[in-house]
Design a binder for these strands. Structure first.
Ligand SMILES: [Mn+2]
Ligand SMILES: [Mn+2]
Ligand SMILES: [Zn+2]
Ligand SMILES: [Zn+2]
Lengths: 133, 133
DNA sequence: GTATTTTTGCAAATTGTTCGCATTTGCTCG
DNA sequence: CGAGCAAATGCGAACAATTTGCAAAAATAC
């Protein structure tokens, strides 16, 4: 492992939410070039240390986000208000994916699932006392 | 409705699989500029005539794909071999999304789910007679 | 039909990401 | 501990999808 890859891996392993390439570059404890960050992320994903998904958010545009591959595969919610991610916990669609695979004769090597909208906080802030006293 | 928007809507309404902006431009019966296609797609989605999702494929890169909003909301499988989409049918994760919404206090306005891998044909082609006589 | 509002075409700009290539680093081995 | 080499990095240019400014053209309103 090179210094750059170690720093990039530490950044995503230590993050509590998915990070974009620029987010990784900002948090990584190294002054590596952005090309190096991209190459390191690609390498880490290929090597099984990271997972990624492409998400579009009205404010941040379309970017690829990376998460650590430690622990069980999980999914995320992205808040369009505060732009934070909420962990949806371990994947719950393994059964559905397996069903679709056998129903349609597919060989699924990857699935992407994420939700977006407003998190509890932003939801309360934008629609105060909905049903409250 | 303008001529360009009508042509773009006809293209996605008539397609049997999600189309990228360039795919729409190729199929739309109009010589409109790419900027017009992008603007028309954005308008149609905002107006509720179309839905979209961003998908990354090793060969085509990251692109936004559009589908008609007619009929029930559905999900897709993308084959990394022949690059066709397979219709996974009407959405089956509405219950899961609702559960996550209430469990975590989220207000989900949109969900993205798609699978990728090899379709039945490409799978058979790449791993012939797996289990066959 | 004329005035007003929208939409379009064109070309340039943006933005996330990738590439070429010379230089450096990480490792293996003697 | 170096020398030798393959792999990784920095830098700047290149890319590709998408967006934008602005003047001309098309819809829509009156
Ligand atoms: Mn965001
Ligand atoms: Mn493809
Ligand atoms: Zn929020
Ligand atoms: Zn296929």
């Amino acid at each position: 492992m090179t210094k750059a890859r170690i720093a990039v891996l530490a950044a995503i392993d230590g993050a509590e939410e998915p990070l974009s390439a620029s987010g990784v570059a900002a948090r990584a404890n190294c002054d590596c070039d952005q090309a190096t960050v991209y190459r390191a992320l690609h390498h880490l994903e290929t090597a099984g240390f990271a997972e990624s998904f492409v998400l579009n958010c009205s404010e941040h545009g379309t970017e690829r986000y990376y998460v650590s591959a430690k622990g069980p595969h999980r999914h995320w919610f992205h808040c369009e208000g505060c732009h934070r991610f909420v962990d949806l916990g371990a994947c719950r669609i393994g059964g559905l994916v397996a069903d679709l695979e056998s129903e349609l004769g597919l060989r699924v090597t990857r699935h992407t699932m994420y939700l977006s909208g407003l998190c509890a906080e932003c939801s309360a802030r934008s629609a105060p006392r909905a049903g409250a006293h």
